[in-house]
Simulated scan of single mutants.
Amino acid sequence: MKLEKVAERLRRQHAGKLVCDDSLVAAMAERCLARNSGARHVDACLDQRVRPALCRGLLTRMVGDMTSAKIILSSSAEGSLTIDLIDRVAPDSDPTTPEASIA
């Protein structure tokens, strides 16, 4: 699946883990079935929504000298994309620091 390619690239380039919530996979599958465009709609969603949002989140963290250990993609009931970026915890930092979320 296309999301697996995104996950592999994130692993290679940023040593991060991408987790796609079942809600996101279901929303993308539903969009494929609801439209005549099928897989092209998934490509468009990845190119226009998922990848740009991931890049913004990763670049914002890089500017602040932070890295994300895990990124969770999900979809709300309304169909909006949610990205939770869970930062790496340095050995001398506070592990109770909340994760960031991009909606």
Rank of each mutant, 00 (worst) to 15 (best):
Q13R: 13
T96W: 03
A29D: 15
M62S: 13
K5S: 15
K2N: 10
S75Y: 01
A44Q: 11
V19T: 09
R11T: 06
D21M: 03
A44Y: 05
E4D: 15
K5Y: 03
V89S: 03
L59E: 10
A29F: 00
L18A: 06
V42G: 01
D87P: 06
G38C: 06
D84W: 01
L46K: 01
G38V: 07
V63Q: 11
L46T: 05
L24Q: 07
P52S: 09
G57H: 09
G64Y: 00
I71A: 02
V42C: 09
A26I: 01
N36T: 08
V19M: 05
T97R: 11
S74D: 08
A39L: 11
L59H: 10
E8V: 05
M62G: 00
A7W: 04
S68A: 15
M66I: 02
H41E: 13
E99L: 07
V89Y: 00
L46E: 09
V25D: 08
A34G: 03
S80C: 07
S101P: 00
C55M: 08
K2L: 12
Q48D: 10
S93R: 08
V50N: 01
L24H: 03
Q13C: 09
A69I: 01
A34C: 01
T96V: 02
L18I: 08
E78T: 12
D43R: 14
A44K: 09
A34N: 12
S37C: 02
D94Q: 03
R49K: 09
V63D: 11
S101V: 10
E99P: 05
A15S: 15
D92V: 03
T97I: 07
A53I: 04
D94K: 06
G38E: 07
K2V: 05
A27R: 11
L10M: 14
G38Q: 14
H41M: 10
V42P: 01
C55T: 13
A103V: 09
Q48Y: 05
E30D: 12
G79D: 03
C45P: 00
K5Q: 13
L54N: 04
H41D: 10
R56Y: 06
K70W: 00
T96H: 05
L85I: 12
N36Y: 08
T67C: 05
D22T: 06
R31S: 11
I71M: 13
D84G: 00
T60K: 08
A69P: 02
R88C: 05
D94I: 02
L10H: 04
I72T: 14
D22A: 13
M1C: 09
R40M: 08
K2G: 01
A53V: 04
G16T: 14
N36H: 11
D22G: 03
I72N: 06
